[in-house]
Simulated scan of single mutants.
Amino acid sequence: MRSSVRVSGGLKVTGAGLAALLLAAGAVGCSKGSDEQSPAMTPAAAVAKAAKNSEDITSLRYRMDGKMPGAGSVNGEAAMSMKPLAMSMKMTSSQSPDPVEIRLVGQALYINGGAEAAKEMDGKSWMKLGSAALGDAAKDLNADSMGAAQADQNPATESTFLTGSKDVKKVGTETVDGVKTTHYKGTVTLAELRKAMKSGDKETRERREKSLQQYEKMGADKLTMDMWIDGSDHTKRFRMNSDTGNGPLDMTITFLDYNKPVTVKAPPAAQTVDLAQMMKDAQSQG
Rank of each mutant, 00 (worst) to 15 (best):
S54I: 03
G219N: 03
D140S: 05
E158H: 08
Q150Y: 05
A118N: 07
D144N: 12
T14A: 14
N154T: 08
T254A: 10
K202R: 13
M225D: 01
T204K: 15
W228D: 00
L193S: 02
P155Q: 02
M278F: 04
N112D: 11
G29Y: 01
V273W: 02
D144S: 12
E209A: 14
K67H: 13
F255T: 10
H183M: 06
T272H: 03
D201M: 09
G172W: 03
T58I: 10
L190V: 08
Q285V: 13
L60S: 06
N142Q: 13
M227G: 01
P97W: 02
A138H: 04
E216D: 13
M82W: 09
D177W: 08
S4I: 09
L18Q: 07
V47Q: 00
D167C: 00
T173Q: 06
M227A: 06
Y110F: 13
A137Y: 03
R6F: 11
T189L: 06
Q271F: 04
V13K: 00
N75K: 14
L275G: 01
G247M: 06
D152W: 06
V47S: 00
D243S: 15
A79V: 03
A156F: 04
S3G: 15
M82Y: 09
S73H: 12
L275M: 10
A143E: 00
S34R: 15
D35N: 14
A86S: 14
K128W: 02
V5G: 10
M218H: 03
A118D: 09
A156N: 12
M1L: 12
S96R: 00
T160P: 05
N241A: 07
L212C: 11
N112I: 07
K32N: 15
A133M: 10
G231L: 09
L275N: 00
L162Q: 01
G9A: 07
K280Q: 13
L21W: 04
A20C: 09
L256D: 12
F238G: 02
A115I: 09
D144W: 10
T182E: 04
E120C: 10
S3D: 13
T14K: 13
T263V: 15
G72Y: 01
R205P: 01
G26P: 02
A71P: 05
K217F: 07
N112C: 04
T224D: 11
M87R: 08
A50R: 02
A276I: 04
